[in-house]
Design a protein around this nucleic acid. Structure first.
Length: 420
RNA sequence: GGAGACGUGGCUGAGUGGUCGAAAGCGCCUCACUGCUAACGAGGUAGCCCGUAAAAAGGCUCCAGGGUUCGAAUCCCUGCGUCUCCGCCA
């Protein structure tokens, strides 16, 4: 959500931003409603002021006659007030839902474009493996090594179901433990959050009201989080933070539930796109300054890049084009890992910043040096998702005999050097 | 699932129809004091909206939404949330 004052003063910038994101906007309609709202508001307020003034004098000593007369006068004021208040209420409802549709403005450095096809590579790292044999995909590799069981996965869960078994389960644990050490050393506080979350927090993070069909819902009206970002943002909801405690850096670990509605035809096999997985997630709340946001955005992106580099997996980083940005995001990097069998990079994580788009909705503030309350800025980035990371890991580290080498940093967590 | 209690400022917590946006304490800010710091002392300190060059004036807010009333933090209804006890389950 953006500040209405800002919207009033910068409507052309906001329109241009929405266009860059290829999102529809109704700024003119909003501003029209906003003007009506202000007009009504001032009418209502002056009626209330009159009412208050008279009520106050009512407490004093008055003759019965005077009192009766005032009461009669106030009855008329009250009737008019009731009418105007009802009008105002309707306008407010419309105003609020329009406010939720105003997208955040993409940064100037975000490239133009329509979809992920138009994202721009900003970094490439590592050497793509040059196999002297025909490489297998992760499905064959892992199935052969009994690291994963898709048949039983679909038997038990259904479409996109999987079991991680044996070394598949152990390797996941090893990665989680390694990630915990790696990111804790960067100053992040590890958190295991709840993932059954109230609607309100989903609204605040911007996953609702649109996007409900992508979420699993409980019979109590709660939703299952698709990322720890949601509960981590909710953590400080409605709080006033101490400026000295900023930035807050959290590393959330959670299962992630995604219905993947509308992507039934994509990635129908394997571990790329599944309904439930686990993820370490970086989240930062910082002071309300663009420079701070940019600084930490680069930092969290660098963190995931360094993590991948330590695993020795070739990757590249792209900056997302306008059309590939969500409503609230100002800028986003995607880190994509090399998948040999597919002969392309696949997304492993993304780092985004939002300015105060989320914190305004969630009411997360801090007191600045001048004593004023400001909305903090928020950022988040994947640290590492499992099992998706296994796709690139096993495919890049496969050997001719179908065994898999373990990256050296993982060996002490995993306990051996090769899976065979 | 059953029964009950509660929801007030940054925090703790008083307040049961008008003089309450709200006692007191803590915290925070300023001043004074001290060689410096702490303690003590004096004063200040809610948020939001509208408005303004900046103010002022005004409006809203004591969980939320309705209602009663000339007037509601206070009375009534509904919802949400938290806690306690019992039950059930681990």
């Amino acid at each position: 959500m953006l500040d209405i004052k800002f919207i009033r003063e910068n409507k052309d910038i906001i329109k241009a931003g929405a266009k860059k994101k290829h999102l529809d906007e109704e700024i003119d309609k909003l501003l029209d409603i906003d003007q009506k709202r202000l007009d009504l508001l001032s009418k209502v307020e002056s009626l209330r002021a009159e009412q208050n003034k008279v009520s106050l004098s009512m407490g004093g000593t008055l003759s019965d006659n005077e009192r009766a007369q005032l009461i009669e006068e106030m009855r008329l004021v009250k009737e008019e007030l009731k009418e105007k208040e009802e009008e105002l209420r309707q306008i407010m409802t419309e105003w609020q839902s329009l406010m939720l549709t105003v997208p955040n403005i993409p940064d100037i450095s975000v490239p133009e474009g329509n979809s992920d096809e138009d994202n721009v590579e900003v970094k490439q790292w590592g050497e793509k493996p040059n196999f002297s044999f025909e490489p297998k995909d992760h499905i064959d590799l892992m199935t052969n090594l009994k690291m994963v069981d898709f048949d039983r996965g679909t038997k038990v869960h259904g479409f996109r179901g999987y079991f991680l078994t044996g070394d598949g389960a152990k390797l996941s644990m090893a990665i989680w433990n390694y990630a915990l050490d790696f990111f804790s050393n960067l100053g992040f506080i590890p958190v295991i959050p709840p993932v059954i979350i109230r609607r309100e927090t989903f609204m605040g993070t911007g996953y609702l009201p649109q996007g409900e069909e992508d979420l699993y819902k409980t019979q109590d009206g709660d939703f299952l989080a698709g990322t720890a970002e949601v509960p981590l943002m909710g953590f400080h909801q409605d709080e006033i933070l101490d400026k000295n405690d900023l930035p807050k850096k959290y590393l959330g670990f959670s299962p992630c539930f995604r219905r993947e509605a509308g992507s039934h035809s994509k990635d129908i096999k394997g571990l790329i796109r599944v309904h439930e997985f686990y993820k370490w997630e970086q989240l930062i709340l910082c002071e309300a300054s663009h420079a701070e946001s940019v600084k930490y955005h680069e930092e969290i992106n660098k963190n995931i890049e360094s993590f991948i580099e330590s695993l020795e997996i070739p990757y590249h980083t792209v900056v997302n084009c306008g059309g590939d940005l969500g409503m609230g995001q100002v800028k986003k990097y995607d880190v994509e890992l090399w998948v040999p069998k597919e002969n392309k990079y696949r997304e492993i994580g993304s780092a985004s910043y939002f300015h105060d788009f989320q914190t305004r909705r969630l009411n997360i503030r801090y007191r600045d040096d001048d004593g004023k309350l400001r909305y903090a800025h928020s950022l988040n980035s994947t640290a590492i998702p499992t099992p998706r990371i296994l796709v690139s890991l096993v495919e890049n580290f496969q050997q001719e005999d179908g065994s898999i080498k373990i990256p050296s940093v993982l060996q002490k967590y995993f306990g051996k050097e090769v899976i065979s």
